[in-house]
Design a protein around this nucleic acid. Structure first.
Length: 300
DNA sequence: TAAGATAAGAGGGACAT
DNA sequence: ATGTCAGTCTTATCTTA
């Protein structure tokens, strides 16, 4: 159906699909080919229930769900994302796999369409959060699982891919807080958290609990803290974990508080505010955790 | 100025209705 | 499904040393 993929106006072979509107347009001259919708008619066949009128198809043929589906069966041969930027090598490999599947079967077309958009968003998140390829691979794997299990339907792709990314970060012990991702993905924290819990529950992800001890270096990297104080903090937190007092507490807050107490004890001058800022928690949280820690009377 | 205290509110898990 | 409860964290404001 894309026998003529050259632009009608400038003749260049540079047609792309706008992910949002579903329109085909020329990336060279900007010409928009709206006739594309009419041409995609035969492609609808796989959504037609055999032998009868499908009630969902009685509306105008230009409904969003229709032309999305009609368009979803091709993957642009160019290695560009929806904003026209080149794909990273990781993403390129993934897309190539997709093309292979696509050529074998058109049945999964809507899923591929969804996946492509998700991977495109993932690609921009990767850049902004400076994450490794391994984490991205893991995130796309999780997202694909979610698609298989039909967990994405009815939920926003952005929230779900962000949640998958968060899960991948947790899994790879690459500490990125939910907040980091929230700020980058332009999705409400609440929504990402909800999707993450869904993924965690439904896919039975065995995500390691964030170890507060690993937070120490991340927090203290922004402050000047002696090695002695850090070692003291590690011992303190190990004792806390042994006593199972760390459950249910924000690891960053706990680590920051332990670090703060160590600093006081080891005469490193640091304010609660500094500590709270580096750990991305509030001073109040620091104080509450400090109170807990003092109550434990841990001698190290 | 830093630290501590208090209050109000959000969000979600557990559990009962 | 909906509501309540206890617990956590955040924001804001006020007090204390």
């Amino acid at each position: 159906m894309f026998s003529n993929s050259n632009c009608f106006r400038c003749g260049k072979n540079s047609l792309l699909i706008d992910e949002v509107t579903g329109e085909q347009f020329c990336s060279k001259c900007g010409y928009v080919i709206s006739e594309k919708l009419d041409a995609s008619g035969p492609e609808w066949r796989s959504f037609q229930k055999e032998g009868g009128t499908d009630p969902t198809r009685t509306g105008a043929p230009t409904s969003l769900t229709m032309h999305d589906r009609g368009l979803a069966t091709i993957i642009s041969p160019m290695n560009k994302d929806s904003s026209g930027k080149p794909l990273t090598s990781t993403m390129k490999r993934t897309i190539e796999r997709l093309r292979t599947w696509d050529s074998r079967s058109k049945v999964n077309a809507p899923v591929d369409k969804n996946l492509r958009q998700a991977l495109s968003e993932l690609s921009t998140l990767k850049d902004k959060l400076s994450l490794s390829d391994a984490v991205i691979e893991k995130a796309s794997y999780i997202y694909r699982k979610a698609l298989e299990r039909k967990l994405v339907r009815g939920r926003s792709i952005s929230a779900m891919i962000a949640a998958a990314l968060y899960a991948a970060c947790r899994d790879a012990e690459t500490p990125r807080t939910l907040k980091d991702i929230t700020n980058t993905a332009n999705v409400k924290r609440k929504d990402i958290a909800k999707c993450y819990r869904l993924l965690h529950h439904e896919l039975e992800l065995k995500v390691p609990v964030v170890d507060s001890i690993q937070c120490i270096s991340r927090i203290s990297s922004k402050l000047k803290i002696t090695e002695k104080a850090k070692r003291y903090t590690v011992k303190l937190l190990q004792e806390v974990q042994k006593r199972k007092e760390s459950a249910g507490k924000d690891p960053m807050g706990l680590a920051a508080s332990a670090l703060y107490l160590s600093c006081v004890k080891n005469e490193v001058s640091v304010t609660q505010r500094d500590m709270a800022e580096s750990a991305n928690v509030t001073e109040v949280t620091i104080r509450n955790r400090c109170k807990d820690l003092k109550r434990l009377n841990i001698e190290v």
